[in-house]
Protein backbone atom coordinates (compact mmCIF):
# COMPACT_ATOMS: atom_id res chain seq x y z
CA UNK A 1 0.00 0.00 0.00
CA UNK A 2 2.72 2.46 1.01
CA UNK A 3 4.58 1.72 -2.20
CA UNK A 4 1.43 2.26 -4.18
CA UNK A 5 0.75 5.62 -2.51
CA UNK A 6 4.35 6.63 -3.07
CA UNK A 7 4.09 5.89 -6.75
CA UNK A 8 0.84 7.78 -6.99
CA UNK A 9 2.36 10.78 -5.23
CA UNK A 10 5.22 10.89 -7.71
CA UNK A 11 2.78 10.83 -10.59
CA UNK A 12 0.81 13.56 -8.91
CA UNK A 13 3.83 15.84 -8.65
CA UNK A 14 4.80 15.21 -12.28
CA UNK A 15 1.29 15.91 -13.46
CA UNK A 16 1.04 19.11 -11.46
CA UNK A 17 4.43 20.33 -12.64
CA UNK A 18 3.35 19.70 -16.21
CA UNK A 19 0.10 21.52 -15.72
CA UNK A 20 1.83 24.49 -14.13
CA UNK A 21 4.46 24.68 -16.86
CA UNK A 22 1.90 24.31 -19.54
CA UNK A 23 -0.34 26.93 -17.99
CA UNK A 24 2.52 29.34 -17.61
CA UNK A 25 3.65 29.21 -21.23
CA UNK A 26 0.08 29.17 -22.44
CA UNK A 27 -0.55 32.45 -20.69
CA UNK A 28 2.58 33.88 -22.24
CA UNK A 29 1.53 33.14 -25.80
CA UNK A 30 -2.01 34.31 -25.27
CA UNK A 31 -3.07 37.25 -27.38
CA UNK A 32 -3.20 40.59 -25.67
CA UNK A 33 -0.90 42.10 -23.07
CA UNK A 34 -1.43 41.09 -19.51
CA UNK A 35 -1.52 44.76 -18.65
CA UNK A 36 -5.02 45.58 -19.78
CA UNK A 37 -4.76 49.31 -19.99
CA UNK A 38 -1.40 49.02 -21.72
CA UNK A 39 -2.42 51.04 -24.73
CA UNK A 40 -3.11 54.13 -22.72
CA UNK A 41 0.23 54.04 -20.99
CA UNK A 42 3.36 55.75 -22.21
CA UNK A 43 6.34 53.43 -22.73
CA UNK A 44 7.90 54.67 -19.50
CA UNK A 45 4.79 54.12 -17.45
CA UNK A 46 4.39 50.75 -19.01
CA UNK A 47 7.93 49.74 -18.11
CA UNK A 48 7.26 50.71 -14.53
CA UNK A 49 4.13 48.60 -14.40
CA UNK A 50 5.82 45.66 -16.02
CA UNK A 51 8.73 45.87 -13.66
CA UNK A 52 6.34 45.88 -10.72
CA UNK A 53 4.92 42.53 -11.83
CA UNK A 54 8.24 41.10 -12.90
CA UNK A 55 7.24 41.08 -16.55
CA UNK A 56 10.48 42.69 -17.68
CA UNK A 57 12.64 39.73 -16.74
CA UNK A 58 13.60 37.11 -19.31
CA UNK A 59 11.05 34.35 -19.74
CA UNK A 60 13.04 31.53 -18.08
CA UNK A 61 13.51 33.71 -15.02
CA UNK A 62 9.82 34.49 -14.90
CA UNK A 63 9.12 30.78 -15.20
CA UNK A 64 11.38 29.78 -12.36
CA UNK A 65 10.07 32.58 -10.19
CA UNK A 66 6.60 31.32 -10.84
CA UNK A 67 7.37 27.67 -10.19
CA UNK A 68 9.32 28.55 -7.07
CA UNK A 69 6.40 30.61 -5.83
CA UNK A 70 4.01 27.76 -6.52
CA UNK A 71 5.90 25.37 -4.30
CA UNK A 72 5.43 27.89 -1.51
CA UNK A 73 1.75 28.24 -2.27
CA UNK A 74 2.14 31.55 -4.03
CA UNK A 75 0.02 31.69 -7.13
CA UNK A 76 1.19 35.09 -8.32
CA UNK A 77 -0.35 38.53 -8.41
CA UNK A 78 -3.54 39.66 -10.06
CA UNK A 79 -2.99 42.49 -12.49
CA UNK A 80 -6.29 43.47 -14.04
CA UNK A 81 -9.10 42.81 -11.63
CA UNK A 82 -7.57 43.21 -8.21
CA UNK A 83 -4.71 45.55 -8.77
CA UNK A 84 -1.80 43.83 -7.12
CA UNK A 85 -3.70 41.41 -4.94
CA UNK A 86 -2.26 37.99 -4.21
CA UNK A 87 -3.99 35.38 -6.33
CA UNK A 88 -3.75 32.95 -3.45
CA UNK A 89 -5.59 35.43 -1.23
CA UNK A 90 -8.26 36.03 -3.86
CA UNK A 91 -8.89 32.30 -4.17
CA UNK A 92 -8.85 31.69 -0.43
CA UNK A 93 -11.25 34.55 0.20
CA UNK A 94 -13.70 32.94 -2.20
CA UNK A 95 -13.32 29.43 -1.00
CA UNK A 96 -16.05 29.51 1.67
CA UNK A 97 -19.18 29.71 -0.49
CA UNK A 98 -17.79 27.28 -3.07
CA UNK A 99 -16.85 24.75 -0.45
CA UNK A 100 -20.22 25.09 1.23
CA UNK A 101 -22.41 24.56 -1.82
CA UNK A 102 -20.07 21.91 -3.20
CA UNK A 103 -20.07 19.95 0.03
CA UNK A 104 -23.80 20.30 0.57
CA UNK A 105 -24.49 19.27 -2.98
CA UNK A 106 -22.21 16.27 -2.73
CA UNK A 107 -23.67 15.03 0.54
CA UNK A 108 -27.27 15.67 -0.42
CA UNK A 109 -26.86 14.07 -3.82
CA UNK A 110 -24.95 11.04 -2.62
CA UNK A 111 -27.29 10.29 0.28
CA UNK A 112 -30.46 10.68 -1.78
CA UNK A 113 -28.88 8.75 -4.63
CA UNK A 114 -27.96 5.84 -2.38
CA UNK A 115 -31.50 5.74 -1.01
CA UNK A 116 -33.01 5.89 -4.46
CA UNK A 117 -30.69 3.20 -5.81
CA UNK A 118 -31.33 0.92 -2.83
CA UNK A 119 -35.09 1.20 -3.12
CA UNK A 120 -34.94 0.61 -6.86
CA UNK A 121 -32.82 -2.51 -6.44
CA UNK A 122 -34.99 -3.94 -3.68
CA UNK A 123 -38.13 -3.27 -5.68
CA UNK A 124 -36.65 -4.26 -9.01
CA UNK A 125 -38.98 -3.98 -12.00
CA UNK A 126 -41.74 -2.21 -10.14
CA UNK A 127 -42.92 1.33 -10.77
CA UNK A 128 -40.64 2.50 -7.92
CA UNK A 129 -37.70 1.11 -9.83
CA UNK A 130 -38.78 2.63 -13.13
CA UNK A 131 -39.33 6.01 -11.52
CA UNK A 132 -35.97 6.03 -9.86
CA UNK A 133 -34.25 4.87 -13.04
CA UNK A 134 -35.95 7.67 -14.91
CA UNK A 135 -34.92 10.24 -12.31
CA UNK A 136 -31.37 8.97 -12.55
CA UNK A 137 -31.25 9.18 -16.33
CA UNK A 138 -32.67 12.68 -16.26
CA UNK A 139 -30.18 13.67 -13.56
CA UNK A 140 -27.23 12.39 -15.58
CA UNK A 141 -28.49 13.95 -18.79
CA UNK A 142 -29.63 17.44 -17.89
CA UNK A 143 -26.65 19.78 -17.56
CA UNK A 144 -26.35 21.51 -14.22
CA UNK A 145 -26.76 24.97 -15.73
CA UNK A 146 -30.09 24.01 -17.28
CA UNK A 147 -31.18 22.53 -14.02
CA UNK A 148 -29.93 25.56 -12.09
CA UNK A 149 -31.85 27.93 -14.38
CA UNK A 150 -35.00 25.90 -13.85
CA UNK A 151 -34.61 25.94 -10.10
CA UNK A 152 -33.96 29.66 -10.13
CA UNK A 153 -36.94 30.35 -12.34
CA UNK A 154 -39.47 28.27 -10.40
CA UNK A 155 -38.28 28.24 -6.80
CA UNK A 156 -36.74 31.69 -6.89
CA UNK A 157 -38.65 33.86 -9.32
CA UNK A 158 -42.07 32.24 -9.59
CA UNK A 159 -42.73 30.80 -6.16
CA UNK A 160 -40.34 32.96 -4.18
CA UNK A 161 -39.36 30.12 -1.84
CA UNK A 162 -35.64 30.77 -1.89
CA UNK A 163 -33.43 33.73 -2.73
CA UNK A 164 -33.18 34.15 -6.50
CA UNK A 165 -29.47 34.84 -6.28
CA UNK A 166 -26.64 36.34 -4.23
CA UNK A 167 -25.05 35.22 -1.02
CA UNK A 168 -26.67 37.31 1.65
CA UNK A 169 -29.28 35.08 3.21
CA UNK A 170 -27.12 32.55 5.00
CA UNK A 171 -28.10 28.95 4.51
CA UNK A 172 -31.14 29.84 2.42
CA UNK A 173 -28.87 31.32 -0.24
CA UNK A 174 -27.05 28.02 -0.50
CA UNK A 175 -30.10 25.80 -0.97
CA UNK A 176 -30.83 26.18 -4.67
CA UNK A 177 -27.17 26.08 -5.79
CA UNK A 178 -26.58 23.02 -3.64
CA UNK A 179 -29.62 21.26 -5.07
CA UNK A 180 -28.48 22.10 -8.60
CA UNK A 181 -25.07 20.63 -7.89
CA UNK A 182 -26.60 17.60 -6.16
CA UNK A 183 -28.29 16.33 -9.31
CA UNK A 184 -25.27 14.67 -10.83
CA UNK A 185 -24.04 12.87 -7.72
CA UNK A 186 -27.61 11.87 -7.01
CA UNK A 187 -28.13 10.33 -10.40
CA UNK A 188 -24.70 8.72 -10.48
CA UNK A 189 -25.06 7.22 -7.03
CA UNK A 190 -28.59 5.98 -7.74
CA UNK A 191 -27.54 4.21 -10.92
CA UNK A 192 -24.40 2.85 -9.41
CA UNK A 193 -25.98 1.57 -6.21
CA UNK A 194 -28.88 0.02 -8.09
CA UNK A 195 -26.56 -1.94 -10.38
CA UNK A 196 -24.25 -2.94 -7.55
CA UNK A 197 -27.10 -3.90 -5.28
CA UNK A 198 -28.75 -6.07 -7.92
CA UNK A 199 -25.47 -7.77 -8.62
CA UNK A 200 -24.78 -8.31 -4.95
CA UNK A 201 -28.31 -9.57 -4.29
CA UNK A 202 -27.79 -12.19 -6.98
CA UNK A 203 -24.47 -13.36 -5.58
CA UNK A 204 -23.81 -16.68 -3.94
CA UNK A 205 -23.09 -15.29 -0.53
CA UNK A 206 -26.49 -13.66 -0.41
CA UNK A 207 -28.06 -17.01 -1.28
CA UNK A 208 -26.03 -18.53 1.52
CA UNK A 209 -27.20 -15.82 3.91
CA UNK A 210 -30.76 -16.64 2.91
CA UNK A 211 -30.03 -20.31 3.40
CA UNK A 212 -28.97 -19.43 6.94
CA UNK A 213 -32.43 -18.05 7.55
CA UNK A 214 -31.65 -14.34 7.37
CA UNK A 215 -34.69 -12.13 6.81
CA UNK A 216 -35.22 -9.77 3.92
CA UNK A 217 -34.07 -6.72 5.85
CA UNK A 218 -31.07 -8.53 7.31
CA UNK A 219 -30.06 -9.55 3.81
CA UNK A 220 -30.46 -6.03 2.50
CA UNK A 221 -28.71 -4.18 5.29
CA UNK A 222 -26.33 -6.59 6.99
CA UNK A 223 -25.06 -8.35 3.90
CA UNK A 224 -25.85 -6.52 0.68
CA UNK A 225 -25.69 -2.83 1.54
CA UNK A 226 -22.10 -2.71 2.67
CA UNK A 227 -20.88 -4.67 -0.32
CA UNK A 228 -22.81 -2.47 -2.71
CA UNK A 229 -21.71 0.72 -0.99
CA UNK A 230 -17.95 0.20 -0.89
CA UNK A 231 -17.45 0.39 -4.67
CA UNK A 232 -19.36 3.68 -4.71
CA UNK A 233 -16.11 5.19 -3.50
CA UNK A 234 -14.73 4.71 -6.99
CA UNK A 235 -17.19 7.19 -8.45
CA UNK A 236 -16.60 9.84 -5.79
CA UNK A 237 -13.78 11.15 -7.99
CA UNK A 238 -15.94 11.71 -11.08
CA UNK A 239 -18.60 13.18 -8.82
CA UNK A 240 -16.16 15.71 -7.43
CA UNK A 241 -15.11 16.62 -10.97
CA UNK A 242 -18.74 17.14 -11.94
CA UNK A 243 -19.41 19.28 -8.88
CA UNK A 244 -16.42 21.46 -9.65
CA UNK A 245 -17.37 21.81 -13.30
CA UNK A 246 -20.93 22.55 -12.31
CA UNK A 247 -19.86 25.11 -9.75
CA UNK A 248 -18.49 27.36 -12.50
CA UNK A 249 -21.92 27.80 -14.02
CA UNK A 250 -24.04 27.35 -10.94
CA UNK A 251 -22.14 30.06 -9.08
CA UNK A 252 -22.46 32.24 -12.12
CA UNK A 253 -26.23 31.71 -12.31
CA UNK A 254 -26.86 32.31 -8.63
CA UNK A 255 -24.23 35.04 -8.38
CA UNK A 256 -22.40 33.23 -5.61
CA UNK A 257 -19.08 34.87 -4.71
CA UNK A 258 -17.14 31.67 -5.09
CA UNK A 259 -14.08 30.49 -6.95
CA UNK A 260 -16.02 29.35 -9.97
CA UNK A 261 -17.74 32.65 -10.50
CA UNK A 262 -14.41 34.40 -10.10
CA UNK A 263 -12.82 32.09 -12.62
CA UNK A 264 -15.43 32.77 -15.27
CA UNK A 265 -15.11 36.50 -14.64
CA UNK A 266 -11.34 36.34 -15.02
CA UNK A 267 -11.74 34.57 -18.34
CA UNK A 268 -13.96 37.42 -19.54
CA UNK A 269 -11.48 40.11 -18.57
CA UNK A 270 -8.31 38.14 -19.39
CA UNK A 271 -6.89 38.26 -15.89
CA UNK A 272 -4.20 35.73 -16.65
CA UNK A 273 -2.80 35.47 -13.17
CA UNK A 274 -6.17 34.52 -11.74
CA UNK A 275 -6.85 32.10 -14.57
CA UNK A 276 -3.51 30.41 -14.05
CA UNK A 277 -3.89 30.34 -10.31
CA UNK A 278 -7.37 28.94 -10.39
CA UNK A 279 -6.46 26.36 -12.99
CA UNK A 280 -3.66 25.11 -10.83
CA UNK A 281 -5.83 25.24 -7.75
CA UNK A 282 -8.53 23.19 -9.49
CA UNK A 283 -5.98 20.68 -10.70
CA UNK A 284 -4.49 20.22 -7.26
CA UNK A 285 -7.94 19.88 -5.76
CA UNK A 286 -9.12 17.22 -8.20
CA UNK A 287 -5.89 15.27 -8.26
CA UNK A 288 -5.72 15.17 -4.48
CA UNK A 289 -9.38 14.13 -4.26
CA UNK A 290 -8.87 11.29 -6.70
CA UNK A 291 -5.79 10.10 -4.82
CA UNK A 292 -7.63 10.27 -1.50
CA UNK A 293 -10.52 8.34 -2.94
CA UNK A 294 -8.21 5.58 -4.11
CA UNK A 295 -6.54 5.38 -0.74
CA UNK A 296 -9.91 5.39 1.00
CA UNK A 297 -11.06 2.49 -1.13
CA UNK A 298 -8.03 0.52 -0.09
CA UNK A 299 -8.62 1.32 3.56
CA UNK A 300 -12.30 0.38 3.54
CA UNK A 301 -12.44 -2.71 1.38
CA UNK A 302 -10.96 -5.59 3.39
CA UNK A 303 -10.10 -7.47 0.21
CA UNK A 304 -7.73 -4.71 -0.85
CA UNK A 305 -6.76 -3.60 2.63
CA UNK A 306 -5.44 -6.95 3.67
CA UNK A 307 -3.83 -8.08 0.50
CA UNK A 308 -1.56 -5.07 0.74
CA UNK A 309 -2.98 -3.03 -2.07
CA UNK A 310 -3.31 -4.70 -5.42
CA UNK A 311 -3.75 -2.71 -8.61
Amino acid sequence: MAKYIGKRLIYMVITLALIATFTFFLMKILPGSPVASADKLSPEQRAVVEARYGLDKPLPVQYFDYMFGLVQGDLGISINQFKGADVTDVILSRMGPSAQIGFQGMVLGTVLGILLGMIAALRQNTWVDYTSTFVAIVGISIPSFVFASLLQYWFGLKWDLFPVALWNDGFMSSVLPSVALAMFPLATAARFIRTEMIEVLGSDYITLAKAKGASGSEIAFKHAFRNALIPLITVLGPMAVAILTGSLVVEQIFAIPGIGEQFVKSIMVNDFAIIMGTTIFFSVFLIVIILLVDILYGVIDPRIRLSGGKN
Binding site: M12, T15, V241, L244, T245, L248, T279, F282, S283, I287
Partner: peptide, 9 residues
Protein backbone atom coordinates in the same frame (compact mmCIF):
# COMPACT_ATOMS: atom_id res chain seq x y z
CA UNK B 1 -0.19 11.65 -16.79
CA UNK B 2 -2.73 12.93 -19.30
CA UNK B 3 -5.64 11.39 -17.44
CA UNK B 4 -4.32 12.98 -14.28
CA UNK B 5 -5.03 16.41 -15.72
CA UNK B 6 -8.64 17.38 -15.13
CA UNK B 7 -10.57 17.54 -18.36
CA UNK B 8 -12.15 20.84 -17.45
CA UNK B 9 -8.78 22.49 -17.02
Amino acid sequence: ILTGIPNLV
